[in-house]
Design a protein around this nucleic acid. Structure first.
Lengths: 156, 156
DNA sequence: TCGCAGAGTCTCTTCACGGAACTCGAAAGG
DNA sequence: CCTTTCGAGTTCCGTGAAGAGACTCTGCGA
């Protein structure tokens, strides 16, 4: 088993589980927050570092890890060794996970003060939040609404 | 700033961000996988330990943390010091996050073998996956479809 | 040529994870 | 009645990762 240099210890990437594999990419501390910041337009190392208060060493490690996994891309600017980080398509897709985290945090952890941020949906112009629906029939789809069956990529 | 005993280092829970607060609850290594296992019916300590291959010490810490945060509840059984862990309503709601992780992992990381598990939706009986929709208008809602605005609980 | 700013590297300390052995309490078994 | 078993942790130790901050390197701009 090959060990990636940035890993907690156990190799989640090798497990036959999409949750574990996803955690292998963004399961380390700070990674989701880095993604959030890049999403809302913080694209440079210094911005990220000072906004998050993360150690420069760890930020470097996380950015490299995310770039290696194709979630972020490093783009030069200004004709000198300057880079910006941007979401790839794969990374943009990952923001879905963040949006659902936001919903849960807003619902269960925000308390009196209310949610720290609001989302305005372009299509309808309303302040709203995300909702999980079945990609087939369009009805709500949550933990209790499904059966989990072994798929083609199941472990032996 | 009070430090919880089970924490990476930086106190995500104190940040004015629902992602960070959510990470404070399930951001530690293994927590999402523990949730997954409890969700699919692994409710006892020994089951979880042997299924995940997690250290018993860490499993104890995680379970306590999740119980403290009201995501799991500890239920006695068998009239002796035996416990089972079950999802609370708050915890069941968190599974939404896992379902979206699964979708991303299935799409981007599953490779040739295909997804390790499949979901059958009770409402329609079809094998399908989750889709993010606007809770207002019902149209798709992803990273690029929204504006992010400061909310009532924003930082000073 | 000096200084500066962005983007990292290096080093050191502290703490958390992994692994394995040990404990504890209730029932079952001889 | 004494011992074993089993579930559910607890304790201990060694290593590796996070945090903090100082240092480096590169190319421009004054």
């Amino acid at each position: 088993m090959r060990y990636d240099e940035a890993m907690q210890r156990t190799d989640f990437g090798a497990m036959a589980c999409s949750i574990a594999r996803t955690l292998d990419v963004i399961g380390e501390p700070w990674s989701p927050l880095i993604l959030r910041d890049v999403w809302v337009g913080m694209n440079r190392f210094e911005q990220l570092q000072s906004d998050l208060g993360i150690s420069r060493k760890v930020l470097t490690e996380r950015l490299n890890h995310l770039v290696e996994h194709g979630v972020l891309e490093r783009r030069p600017y200004d004709n000198r060794p300057r880079h910006e980080y941007h979401l790839t398509e794969k990374g943009t897709d990952l923001v879905d996970v963040l949006m659902v985290m936001v919903r849960w945090g807003d619902t269960w952890l925000a308390g009196e003060a209310g949610p720290p941020v609001l989302y305005r949906h372009h299509a309808c112009g309303e302040i709203s939040s995300v909702d999980l629906r079945c990609s087939g029939c369009g009805e709500p789809m949550h933990a209790g609404d499904i059966d989990v069956l072994p798929g083609p990529g199941a472990a032996a």
